[in-house]
Design a protein around this nucleic acid. Structure first.
Lengths: 151, 151
DNA sequence: ACTTGACTTCGAGTGCGCTCTAACTTGTAC
DNA sequence: GTACAAGTTAGAGCGCACTCGAAGTCAAGT
């Protein structure tokens, strides 16, 4: 019933390397995995869910230290530390939201610049074979509120 | 007219450290800054705009190597390499968009988990002083589509 | 004359998160 | 038996992006 995957399979399933999986276990992000008689790891579906969750935290930029905290609470007592864990997650949530917002802001600027390049190229094409006259404009770097073509 | 800031002031203005500013110049992210007779740097507003732009790229996860490429093109010829630079930006844009989307996906999962914790706590409060009966549920890690309270 | 403080360079050091190596054990296939 | 594949460990190494330290220069203030 319970699949019980090898480390290889878990690596494939989660996108982490086998090295990383062992590394995570070493630094207590993952509780000791069940072993076969020969010492080989066998991961339960539960283990895999946990790893996938860790991966999400990681992908959203949570530092390993914090994941360790979370994992430690989990191993200490899944019940009694629930509140503390929720708080950790909520704190991280705030970070994520801020992160997303900043990315979106910066995306807007990048888009603005890309569009600007498009205009320059169009102008170049329209006005002859060589690049536009406004060398300076091209060198301009940041919109910084309503900056027109001038410098 | 032109302000011409010291490295200190630029650090304050941009949020980068003076160390980092020098480091960026060393590795050609920033073209050689104008110097006073005594060797001290004086940054023009143009320089600052460029630095702010770099910072945006950095904040959106562009590796220094790529920024170097962009900077190199810029120094090579602001006009003739415009197209190439636009392409670089467009490629980066794609990365950013993907990044934002993944963050949002993961945010949704984190939110789901936080909410779940909230429910557990409410249940705990409702049913007496001690934690809820479903110890296992609490240990569950990932929603992975319609996972109910079981295991 | 001397201290203070802001700057300079070069090169070394740091912290993070892996990533890899070497040496070894096990289990299976031929 | 012997080769091969897949696992194990401890520990070293790596790439990135800074970050810092040491030693020196220079200008202004007392």
């Amino acid at each position: 019933m319970e699949p019980e995957l090898t480390i290889q399979q878990v690596a494939e399933a989660t996108g982490l390397s086998v090295h990383t999986l062992r590394y995570y276990e070493r630094c207590d992000l993952i509780a000791p995995i069940r072993r076969l008689a020969n010492g080989h790891r066998r991961y339960s579906t539960r283990d895999i869910r946990w790893i996938e969750f860790l991966n999400r935290l990681r992908l959203t930029g949570m530092p390993i230290r914090q994941m360790q905290q979370y994992a430690a609470l989990m191993q200490q007592s899944p019940d009694e530390t629930a509140q503390e864990r929720r708080q950790l997650l909520e704190a991280h949530r705030e970070v994520m939201v801020a992160q997303i917002q900043q990315l979106q802001e910066n995306l807007a600027v990048i888009d603005w610049k890309i569009q600007h390049y498009g205009e320059l190229e169009a102008k170049a094409k329209a006005s002859g074979l060589f690049p536009p006259e406004d060398t300076q404009t091209n060198g301009q770097i940041l919109p910084s509120r309503r900056s027109s073509n001038r410098l």
